[in-house]
């Protein structure tokens, strides 16, 4: 890239102008959502929907929280998400360990079968999976919402990549020290690959929190609506209450926005992991 010291001032100004314009473009929908959430709906429409808020109601986020029954929705989403993330971490780490440090007949075949599940998205198997949940009487339940996501081939693959990077010497040394597999896993393999595992945890959180199709299919009572599918009903309300739905949607993005800001490195590593060749 161009050395910033060599860049003339006018060129720098031009780039800031371009970057500023692009930022406005990306942020425009969010700004308009914020304006809509904060404005009193009737006055906003009366004034011809300007790009600034009208008759600001600062308490809208609090009202969206109570009127949208967000405590229950957030707790439900959080419970499902935590169960899914923890389960995926355990199942993926164990599977990854088997695929990288344990030698047994049929390992390659097992690996191929595991990876094959990545070709089969939930959209395809939706109908029989909903039937399974129905047969188990798990519609409208936490276990029904979480069950299909307790393991993921992507996690096993990603963490295996991390494990494969552990130098042979380290393994041999651990073996000489009398480490069995469980001790090696706990005291060496997991600590050494912590960045990879953390990246996977972030991605796992992101996809569990944002889940939509599955909850829509296995939730039939409003009481069991997760945050994401609850947004649909809130947003579909009458115009006079449109600010509530929009405010709830903005609130739903906050946890992930926090991830983006505080765990940016891990999030980016996780998102780009699939893009590296191999």
């Amino acid at each position: 890239m161009d050395d910033p010291a060599l860049l003339p001032a006018w060129k720098k100004a031009l780039w800031y102008l371009v970057l500023g314009a692009l930022s406005l473009l990306v942020l425009f929908p969010v700004w308009m959502a914020l304006v809509r959430a904060l404005s009193t709906p009737a006055s906003y429409v009366r004034d011809g929907q300007p790009i600034h808020p009208v008759d600001v109601q600062w308490d809208i986020f609090g009202r969206a929280w109570t009127e949208g029954d967000l405590t229950r929705k957030v707790l439900l989403s959080l419970a499902v998400t935590v169960i899914v993330v923890v389960a995926q971490l355990i199942t993926s780490v164990l599977a990854a360990y088997a695929f990288s440090f344990l030698e047994f007949r049929g390992r390659t075949a097992c690996f191929a079968v595991f990876m094959g599940t990545m070709l089969l998205p939930l959209e395809v198997t939706l109908i029989p999976n909903v039937q399974t949940i129905r047969d188990l009487h798990w519609l409208n339940s936490i276990q029904g919402l979480a069950a299909p996501f307790l393991a993921t081939a992507f996690g096993a693959f990603l963490i295996r990549q991390g494990f494969m990077g552990i130098p042979r010497d380290l393994r041999d040394a651990a073996q000489l020290d009398g480490f069995g597999h469980l001790a090696f896993l706990r005291r060496v393999a997991i600590p050494v690959t912590r960045p990879v595992i953390a990246s996977f945890a972030v991605i796992s959180f992101l996809s569990a929190w944002n889940q939509y199709l599955w909850p829509r299919a296995v939730v039939t009572e409003g009481r069991w609506a997760t945050l994401q599918i609850g947004l649909k009903d809130l947003a579909a309300a009458k115009v006079e209450q449109s600010n509530i739905g929009v405010a709830a949607a903005l609130l739903a993005a906050v946890p992930v926005l926090a991830l983006l800001i505080f765990l940016q490195r891990h999030l980016i590593r996780g998102l780009t992991a699939g893009a590296v060749k191999g």
């Binding site: 990306v26 929908p29 969010v30 308009m32 959502a33 994401q228 929009v246 983006l260």
Partner: peptide, 16 residues
Amino acid sequence: STVASSVAVASVVFFV
């Protein structure tokens, strides 16, 4: 920043 938005959130934002 738009990765912070789920499909559902993006849909509500665009509904506006």
